[in-house]
Amino acid sequence: MRILSAGLPAPVVNPVIRSRSGAFVARVDLCWPQYRMVLEYEGDQHRTDAAQWHRDLQRVPRLEEEGWHVTRAADPDLADTTRIIRNLERLMRTRTTT
């Protein structure tokens, strides 16, 4: 809701991202396909579960290899979304729409 209240476009929720050849890359929390931008929420289990942390470390480069920008957020970021909103706005201004 804060994203929409800030006037940003509505994100797609929990989509599957595929490579240019159609292979599965990742399922993400929020994305804006027109900007090739992803917002991922990293709950505490991402930090405390070693296997999850390792998967996260692998998935971000895979998304970036396909031209996606990944913004990662955790609980403190949700308490004050000012920084994330400002970052998303800046990225949307600089990234080409499709």
Results as ranks from 00 to 15, higher is better:
residue 1 M to T: 08
residue 9 P to H: 04
residue 10 A to C: 13
residue 11 P to L: 05
residue 13 V to D: 13
residue 16 V to Y: 05
residue 18 R to E: 09
residue 19 S to V: 04
residue 22 G to E: 07
residue 26 A to H: 02
residue 26 A to M: 00
residue 31 C to R: 11
residue 31 C to P: 03
residue 34 Q to V: 08
residue 35 Y to K: 13
residue 36 R to D: 02
residue 39 L to C: 04
residue 41 Y to V: 10
residue 41 Y to E: 03
residue 42 E to I: 13
residue 46 H to K: 13
residue 47 R to M: 02
residue 47 R to W: 13
residue 50 A to R: 15
residue 51 A to H: 12
residue 51 A to K: 13
residue 52 Q to A: 15
residue 57 L to D: 03
residue 57 L to P: 00
residue 58 Q to T: 02
residue 59 R to V: 09
residue 60 V to R: 15
residue 62 R to A: 15
residue 63 L to I: 07
residue 64 E to R: 11
residue 67 G to Q: 03
residue 69 H to G: 03
residue 69 H to P: 00
residue 71 T to Y: 05
residue 71 T to G: 02
residue 73 A to Y: 01
residue 74 A to T: 13
residue 74 A to I: 09
residue 75 D to H: 03
residue 76 P to Q: 07
residue 77 D to Y: 04
residue 79 A to R: 15
residue 80 D to L: 13
residue 80 D to F: 08
residue 81 T to F: 10
residue 82 T to K: 05
residue 84 I to P: 01
residue 85 I to H: 07
residue 86 R to L: 02
residue 87 N to W: 06
residue 88 L to E: 01
residue 89 E to R: 14
residue 91 L to T: 05
residue 95 R to A: 01
residue 96 T to C: 02
residue 97 T to Y: 04
residue 97 T to A: 14
residue 98 T to H: 05
residue 98 T to F: 10
